[in-house]
Design a protein around this nucleic acid. Structure first.
Lengths: 273, 273
DNA sequence: TCGGAATGGTCCATTATTTGGACCGATGGT
DNA sequence: ACCATCGGTCCAAATAATGGACCATTCCGA
């Protein structure tokens, strides 16, 4: 790795938990000599990527990052970032895939890709209301949201959108625990009769859920095998879509996804043998 | 300048207006050889600071920036960034200084610093309503806001908070033009009887106004000389506070501030001579 | 009050990396 | 079919990065 890589690597040692780092601490974290670390930090500081704390003590992330991130966001909306991943999912499983983001007390659709292989397919329009409690997207997001925020949302009365919609907060809390363990959420006709869905969440840079990626399909195509395919496809994109958004999934979730992927590999090879 | 500085310098060529740049274009922009530019971009891409467009064409800002910016924002609120600048202003002019940010259709106070030199001083509390049309902060922000957003705000009925509050949209539009030319806004008892204020806006990374920095003082201390002092102090912090926030003021405003600063220098030296 | 062990920071000869011109294949316009 | 331009690669020469020794300051316990 070249000098540039090393220097930029320094920035990765900052996080929400470790917002400022001193010279010696950096030396220990990186293994480079003090002089090297100091020169790298000086160069980063020169460009505004880090800044020194008041009495030239510890270093922390600098304003240039905010500026550049704003420039990126400005011409590169969530929709565009998410698009290729939604398209990939949709192509992969030949069903409706869509991405939603948190917008106050509900989710907002940012992009969806319809697939045209099936005569029977789920219709979808952009301006539909997507409540947390009645959709797999919502549940997969809630599962990784701050407990306080979850409670705030569950306190309000929950609308029963179909006869299968769960409206009891305690049952939903239980579901969230199961979803956290499973690494994905699936729902069967809780929002609209005849429609099932499966979802995984995606995250921002500090492991907060931003929204969800989901597959929506008619109940007539629901089976153990198809659900397995859908969930596998979602998990395959999970890490990629979060990274594309500049985010980082919780390590715990990442492990679940990876284990699931390996288990599936094994299954596939056995079937092929 | 070392290698690192050159590499990071590449990122500065991206902006809202030029969101993606090809290899040859970079070569022209920087003057470096194609090989050099390519290697720098490859290193940046490796670290996620830029990403290549679909068919390995142009480069654009990468997800790592979003991630790091989020980490920075997470432990480093606007309040903390703004604080030293507000304190500096307050100390410098011995008056109440405060910073506000846009919050929907009004401003929200994020920090203020009271000064205790005067027996008579403006009282201020955190939860006051700060409407755009009746405050210098609001006017200075409006002056640099999207025309569409300005119109949206001026369409609503404007409350007369004192007998001097301007409520005619057309007169306010006129005022905004004057404020854009002047580089600052000042108001005399338009929000509260006996209270004057002067403000300058600060900006995000793509030249959108975020909020304003202002000095608020009793009308009894209003004079041409004091106003001049206040405005001079504000303009002196203008660029710094925006940069600390990771932002960039419009070039046009920057020129106005610099010219004003130089003019004042001249004035001072003449007075001292 | 003192001394030791942290801390942040600098210097310089050695070392390893960066540099840019020449060169290659691909693409697109005329 | 041509030429211009694009992104990308290679390698000897030029240059910048490296880290151990060293210094000043601060902090902490005796």
């Amino acid at each position: 790795m070249g000098t540039i890589g090393k220097t930029l690597g320094l920035l990765d040692h900052f996080s929400a938990e470790r917002p400022s780092i001193g010279l010696s601490e950096f030396q220990r974290l990186t293994g480079y000599s003090k002089a090297t670390v100091h020169r790298h930090l000086a160069a980063l500081a020169e460009a505004g990527f880090v800044e020194k704390d008041f009495r030239s003590h510890a270093y922390r992330l600098g304003p240039a990052l905010t500026r550049l991130a704003a420039a990126r966001e400005c011409c590169f909306t969530v929709r565009e970032i998410v698009k290729p991943h939604v398209d990939a999912i949709s192509r992969g499983v030949a069903e409706l895939a869509h991405a939603t983001v948190i917008d106050g007390d509900r989710l907002r659709s940012v992009y969806y890709a319809q697939h045209h292989d099936h005569a029977v397919r789920v219709q979808f329009s952009d301006d539909e209301i997507i409540p947390f409690h009645a959709t797999s997207s919502g549940i997969s997001v809630l599962a990784w949201l701050d407990e306080d925020q979850v409670e705030e949302l569950l306190e309000k009365p929950l609308e029963a959108m179909t006869e299968r919609t769960e409206t009891r907060a305690e049952v939903i809390r239980q579901k969230l625990r199961a979803v956290r363990r499973a690494g994905y959420a699936e729902m069967n006709q809780t929002r609209e009769a005849g429609v099932c869905s499966a979802s995984i969440p995606f995250f921002d840079g500090v492991e907060r859920p931003l929204g969800a990626l989901s597959i929506t399909f008619p109940v007539t195509r629901d089976s153990a095998a198809s659900r397995r395919r859908f969930i596998c496809a979602l998990m395959g994109q999970g890490q990629r879509i979060t990274e594309a958004l500049g985010g980082r999934p919780p390590a715990r979730l990442l492990r679940i996804w990876q284990n699931a992927g390996e288990a599936d590999q094994d299954g596939t090879s056995r079937r092929n043998a």
